[in-house]
Simulated scan of single mutants.
Amino acid sequence: MTHGPKHLPAHISALLDRQQRSPDGQPADSAGTPWSGRDLSGEGNPLHTFDGDDGLIAAALGEARRRLLAGDTDEPGFVNALAGQRVFAPVIATGHGDAEQGDKEADISLVTLTASDGRSAMPVFTSVEELTAWHPQARPVAAEAERVMLAALAEGAQLVVLDPGSPILTFVVRGPAVEALARGRRWTPSYQDQELAQALAELPDMCPGVTGLRLSPGQGIMSAAADGSAVIGGGAGPELSIGVVVEPGTDAVGVRLALAAVQAAIEDIDLLRERADSVQVIRAADQS
């Protein structure tokens, strides 16, 4: 049996656009041999073909990770350091055996995961070693972070998980940050977003018993390095904490009503849905 030519999805083709090309313009290895129709499951067929690429973590990204682990930079500092850096997206090659041709015609698909909260996530890696340790059958496609984030969005991923299972650090890049990187923009987290704070400033006037709101990082931004040390950033939990300040003397029922009023009011804030990955509404800490 023979098979017609395979056509890669556009977002995977976009990743491969940075790769070497054969004379007829097809994605190819460094010798110019097309990937199409080849068995990609064996050794000698890595897709990380940046000129002189050693497959190690990019120097600037490695330094940003070191600074994050040392507490010398914060979550947006690390996320924005991804811009322009070469990372690796894992692809799985499958194919139909052809006895007459003696090879395989390969289909290529990106790998996606389901996060613990049910959201779709795409794994991305800083080095070939991290990727192959996580999934020995996967093959690395090297591309700038912007291209990889675009591919993640095209796959419907709501999160990007950087180096899952890493012996150093696993870091979750949440949806708004993925979109900002994909568009070539700097990412400002919702808890530092002054425009968002302004959009929420009028809510207390619409919520009985509420005198103010305090925005702060949610507990869910925290993650842990492999040695157990706390890392400010990279967690998958609530990103933004909205602390509700209630009128003095408000009883427990009044507090619950005030929190419910704020929760209902924020559902109508389009900018909040755009800028914040996940939100928790709580009573302001100094009133509890």
Score class of each variant (00 low, 15 high):
Gly220Tyr: 02
Arg67Met: 07
Gln194Arg: 14
Lys104His: 12
Gly25Ala: 12
Gly209Cys: 08
Asp24Asn: 15
Ala99Lys: 11
Ala10Gln: 12
Thr126Ala: 09
Ala70Gly: 02
Pro9Gln: 05
Asp54Thr: 13
Lys6Phe: 00
Arg186Ala: 13
Gln219Asp: 15
Ala261Gly: 08
Ala14Trp: 00
Ala59Lys: 10
Ser127Ile: 02
Pro76Leu: 02
Met1Asn: 02
Ala89Cys: 12
Gln280Cys: 08
Leu16Thr: 08
Pro23Leu: 10
Val231Cys: 04
Leu159Cys: 09
Pro46Gln: 06
Val161Cys: 01
Gln263Thr: 15
Val281His: 07
Asp29Lys: 07
Gly84Ala: 10
Ser216Met: 06
Ala201Val: 03
Leu181Pro: 11
Gly77Ile: 07
Leu69Val: 03
Glu105His: 12
Phe78Glu: 08
Ala157Phe: 04
Thr33Met: 12
Arg18Ser: 09
Thr49Met: 00
His3Leu: 13
Ala199Cys: 02
Ala83Asn: 14
Ile266Asp: 05
Arg183Thr: 06
Leu40Arg: 00
Thr2Asn: 05
Lys6Met: 03
Leu271Trp: 01
Leu159Asn: 09
Ala264Leu: 15
Gly25Ile: 14
Thr170Met: 10
Arg186Phe: 09
Val79Arg: 02
Asp53His: 01
Leu56Ser: 11
Asp103Val: 12
Arg66Thr: 15
Ala10Asp: 15
Ala152Gly: 05
Ala83Tyr: 05
Gly218Val: 12
Asp107Ser: 11
Pro167His: 04
Ala197Tyr: 00
His3Lys: 08
Ile282His: 11
Leu196Cys: 03
Arg147Val: 02
Ala58Arg: 08
Arg283Asn: 09
Val178Ile: 11
Leu153Ser: 06
Leu150Cys: 08
Leu272Asn: 05
Ala14Lys: 07
Asp17Pro: 01
Gly52His: 07
Arg18Gln: 08
Met122His: 04
Trp35His: 11
Cys207Pro: 06
Gly95Trp: 04
Gly175Asp: 14
Ala226Pro: 12
Ala276Trp: 03
Lys104Asp: 08
Arg119His: 11
Glu63Asp: 14
Ile12Cys: 06
Gln20Leu: 01
Val253Trp: 01
Gly228Met: 07
Phe88His: 14
Ala106Met: 04
Leu196Phe: 02
Ala157Arg: 03
